[in-house]
């Protein structure tokens, strides 16, 4: 091989297509890689009398992991996110299954689009609209009071349950989409073969359909986890200030105390949790199958 290393110059003229990829790369490096690197740097700096001081130490990390109320935000976040993910899967799986197997093909796409349309409802407004349903004078309390089932309005808004409700509503739609996309790719011949060999309908489901649909569940669950654990709006609007999750704690550090080092520590911790979850679930998420 005697080909020269660089691309042969066709003409002396400038061809900007040669640099087609570079603007996007420049943007990604300057607006993504550099900021993340800066965040790591700042997490080792100190805040002295309200100003950033480039004194290197791990003090912020030991403060975060050593202070109970700060560390609790991490445990709260993980608990809420895990419960959200599990409940969303349990609700979304039957929906995706019914769409894929019980609804005639003509209607499948239409109902699916209909079922995930509110996914695009304005994000801030979506949480707010749940307040209309569950707040003290909201619809649920109105109905229950008028039916005489309760004497006092139930306190549903501004609790952990409300946060989870808002999340589950959102992610059920997302998971329905990923699970459905996986289910319709399973070849019907597998299920037929199992039936011919004498498997009952339950056996077909548990030994054929369910295992083959795990990638769709895993991908959806991972996206759910990533978005939910980094979400500020839903816990802020629906959960109120009864308990603080990490994103709320980060915003508090920034807006109240202008404590960028501590906010960076929390952000990096969140990222590490996400990386860890990815590492644990990666082998189940065969993206190409979804």
């Amino acid at each position: 091989m005697t080909r020269p290393k660089g691309k042969p110059r066709k003409s002396g003229r400038f061809e900007f297509t040669r640099w087609a990829i570079h603007p996007a790369l420049l943007f990604t490096v300057v607006l993504f890689v550099l900021p993340l690197a800066m965040m790591v740097v700042v997490s080792f700096w100190q805040r002295v009398y309200g100003r950033l001081s480039a004194t290197w130490s791990t003090a912020n990390y030991s403060k975060f992991f050593g202070t109970e109320y700060l560390l609790d935000t991490l445990f709260n976040s993980i608990e809420v996110t895990v419960v959200t993910t599990i409940v969303s899967i349990l609700l979304a799986y039957p929906l995706a299954y019914i769409l894929a197997y019980k609804v005639s093909p003509r209607w499948q796409k239409l109902i699916l689009i209909f079922a995930v349309l509110p996914f695009w409802t304005a994000y801030v407004v979506r949480s707010y609209s749940w307040l209309l349903v569950i707040s003290e004078n909201g619809i649920v309390n109105y109905v229950l009071l008028n039916l005489g089932l309760i004497d006092q309005p139930l306190q549903m808004a501004y609790t952990r349950g409300a946060t989870i409700l808002g999340f589950v509503h959102f992610f059920t739609m997302l998971l329905t989409l990923t699970i459905y996309a996986n289910l319709v790719q399973i070849k019907p011949s597998y299920q037929k073969a199992a039936e011919d060999l004498g498997a009952s309908r339950l056996q077909v489901f548990f030994r054929i359909t369910l295992p083959l649909s795990i990638p769709g569940v895993a991908v959806g669950a991972f996206i759910t986890f990533v978005i939910a654990i980094g979400d500020f709006i839903t816990p802020q609007i629906l959960g109120g200030s009864t308990e603080v999750l990490v994103p709320q704690a980060i915003i508090l550090q920034v807006s109240r105390a202008a404590n960028f080092p501590m906010a960076s520590v929390m952000s990096i911790t969140l990222m590490l949790v996400i990386v860890l979850v990815y590492a644990l679930t990666a082998k189940h998420q065969k993206m190409d199958r979804v």
């Binding site: 900021p35 990533v226 500020f232 990222m271």
Partner: peptide, 27 residues
């Protein structure tokens, strides 16, 4: 590697990207 780099922002929460930008723009 370039494709991975271009797709990478998808895997990070908006909150974290926003925090990184806030700190960088601030500095």
């Amino acid at each position: 590697g370039i494709r991975f780099l271009l797709m990478a922002p998808l895997t990070v929460s908006y909150l974290i990207i926003g925090m990184g930008l806030l700190i960088t723009f601030n500095l």
